[in-house]
């Protein structure tokens, strides 16, 4: 605007310069919450990482070495993966076709409300309910016996299958509701267009819906897997916590709060985080091979 003599730039106050970059009083409102999360989440995480490298005895990697050299501890990674990956895949496999039908319903609220129940009630309550329901005298076995599907009660509690069932009961609704939001995000006109161009139901799904859905399903897989991998109360209450469902979170908890080895506990927690990260990165890496962009209308 006004010409400024060369060599004497007008001093712009710091306040104005900061405001121009988007920093003013209002921006500062983010600080308290940010500090809280840094203090309660980021710092403990870093603290845990450092702690895991400061074992009670031995070199800095001793805690990790303990974990990987003790088969009882090492196998928890495998035990947990064997639970988390099949249940997550099963939940997605069930969720996709159901979401495709529910998407057409005009009143989805009742179903979604019922499905939100187990997620809200949480794993502890589901574990307690399943202990009776899946037990040898429970309704589940009685029904199968009455229908002559089985000859003797199945053993479904205090083993792998009890935890499996609890991961499906609490995991499926979560997976389903995420999948439903992705499926509903696809413009129904795309299906109509494919149909008028000669694609039957199977090819409409394979050529149009599936490619558009894969990125969303990858995210759904990651979120569901990460939850399932951290399975804890149901593995203790409903599984065989010293045997087939000796999952990694049990190992971490026992190390930190029963054996009071904070370094080993943190090391196991870090391993748990690392395994989750690896699986998530693999899933997201696979996702990048597919189209990622708007799947709604293609209006310009």
């Amino acid at each position: 605007m006004t010409a400024v003599p060369a060599g004497r730039p007008t001093a712009v106050p710091l306040r104005v310069r900061l405001a121009a970059r988007g920093i003013d009083g209002t921006t500062m409102l983010v600080v308290p919450a940010l500090l809280a999360i840094v203090a309660l989440f980021v710092y403990p995480f870093v603290y845990g990482l450092v702690l895991s490298l400061q074992p009670k005895v031995g070199p800095f990697t001793a805690s990790y070495r303990t974990f990987f050299s003790d088969p009882f501890l090492r196998e928890t990674v495998w035990n947990t993966l064997v639970l988390a990956i099949p249940t997550t895949l099963l939940n997605i496999l069930l969720a996709v076709p159901i979401a495709f039908r529910v998407r057409l319903m005009s009143n989805q609220r009742l179903l979604t409300t019922i499905l939100v129940l187990p997620v809200t009630l949480g794993t502890v309550l589901v574990a307690q309910g399943l202990l009776t329901y899946l037990g040898p005298q429970g309704w589940f076995n009685r029904t199968l016996l009455a229908l002559h599907v089985i000859g003797a009660p199945l053993k479904l509690t205090n083993n792998y299958w009890g935890v499996f069932a609890s991961l499906v009961i609490t995991g499926f609704p979560f997976t389903f509701l995420l999948t439903l939001s992705y499926v509903s995000g696809i413009d129904p006109a795309l299906e109509h267009a494919a149909a008028t161009l000669g694609a039957g139901a199977a090819r409409r799904f394979g050529r149009i819906f599936l490619p558009l859905l894969v990125p969303g399903l990858a995210v759904t897989f990651c979120l569901s897997f990460v939850q399932a991998f951290a399975v804890f109360p149901s593995a203790v209450l409903l599984g065989a916590p010293a045997g087939s469902t000796h999952v990694i979170s049990i190992a971490a908890y026992q190390a930190a709060f029963e054996r009071y080895d904070a370094s080993l506990g943190s090391a196991i927690a870090m391993v748990m985080g690392a395994v989750q990260l690896v699986v998530v990165l693999l899933a997201l890496g696979a996702r990048s091979l597919f189209y990622r962009g708007p799947v709604g209308g293609t209006k310009g």
Partner: peptide, 9 residues
């Protein structure tokens, strides 16, 4: 549970 253990410690 993943971040809870170091945080509780």
């Amino acid at each position: 549970l993943t971040y809870g253990i170091p945080m509780a410690t």
